[in-house]
Amino acid sequence: IRKQWHEDITQDLRNHLVHKLVQAIFPTPDPAALKDRRMENLVAYARKVEGDMYESANNRAEYYHLLAEKIYKIQKELEEKRRT
């Protein structure tokens, strides 16, 4: 379902936000690492998460909020795993 606010969101912005999700899960300073085949699954997962939020959000603010919440949860989980 195409929503009115979707018209304001460019593909570049969506790609940028997918990249932010990927960085939250696997922070790497090396952009070449993103071309690694093992990263493809991670990028696919991040695209799916972003797509789900894009579809479920009712406006741009909610879209950003859902993504920020997801990134926060991912970082929290990773922190907890590092501690144990």
Rank of each mutant, 00 (worst) to 15 (best):
29 P>K: 14
54 Y>S: 01
17 L>C: 08
79 E>Q: 06
48 K>G: 05
3 K>A: 01
46 A>V: 02
78 L>K: 15
47 R>L: 03
83 R>A: 12
45 Y>H: 07
79 E>Y: 01
79 E>W: 03
19 H>Y: 12
50 E>G: 00
35 K>W: 05
59 N>I: 00
82 R>Y: 00
34 L>Y: 11
59 N>A: 03
26 F>A: 15
23 Q>W: 06
62 E>C: 00
34 L>W: 08
77 E>D: 12
20 K>G: 01
37 R>G: 15
56 S>A: 13
30 D>A: 12
58 N>F: 00
41 N>S: 14
28 T>M: 10
18 V>F: 06
48 K>L: 01
7 E>A: 12
6 H>T: 05
31 P>I: 14
74 I>S: 09
81 K>W: 05
73 K>M: 09
69 E>V: 06
27 P>S: 10
79 E>C: 04
67 L>W: 02
27 P>Q: 11
83 R>P: 13
39 M>C: 07
65 H>L: 05
44 A>N: 13
82 R>I: 11
60 R>C: 04
20 K>L: 04
59 N>R: 01
21 L>F: 05
26 F>T: 15
46 A>C: 09
11 Q>K: 03
6 H>D: 01
1 I>E: 12
46 A>P: 06
49 V>G: 01
61 A>N: 14
48 K>H: 01
17 L>I: 11
16 H>G: 12
74 I>K: 14
64 Y>M: 15
21 L>G: 02
10 T>Q: 01
1 I>D: 06
11 Q>V: 05
23 Q>G: 05
49 V>K: 02
58 N>T: 09
68 A>M: 14
45 Y>D: 11
43 V>T: 07
10 T>V: 03
29 P>S: 15
43 V>H: 06
22 V>K: 04
83 R>E: 11
5 W>F: 05
50 E>W: 01
78 L>M: 12
59 N>Y: 00
10 T>W: 00
81 K>A: 10
80 E>F: 07
16 H>V: 09
64 Y>A: 12
46 A>Y: 04
49 V>P: 03
65 H>N: 10
68 A>D: 15
42 L>P: 08
47 R>G: 03
68 A>K: 15
7 E>T: 06
23 Q>Y: 07
33 A>P: 11
73 K>L: 11
37 R>D: 09
82 R>C: 11
2 R>F: 10
48 K>Y: 01
32 A>E: 13
79 E>D: 09
17 L>E: 15
62 E>I: 03
52 D>H: 04
15 N>D: 15
56 S>K: 15
7 E>V: 03
84 T>M: 06
28 T>K: 12
28 T>A: 07
16 H>W: 01
45 Y>T: 01
47 R>A: 01
3 K>N: 06
40 E>Q: 11
19 H>L: 08
3 K>E: 07
77 E>C: 14
47 R>D: 07
39 M>Y: 14
44 A>E: 09
12 D>M: 00
10 T>M: 04
69 E>Y: 03
20 K>E: 07
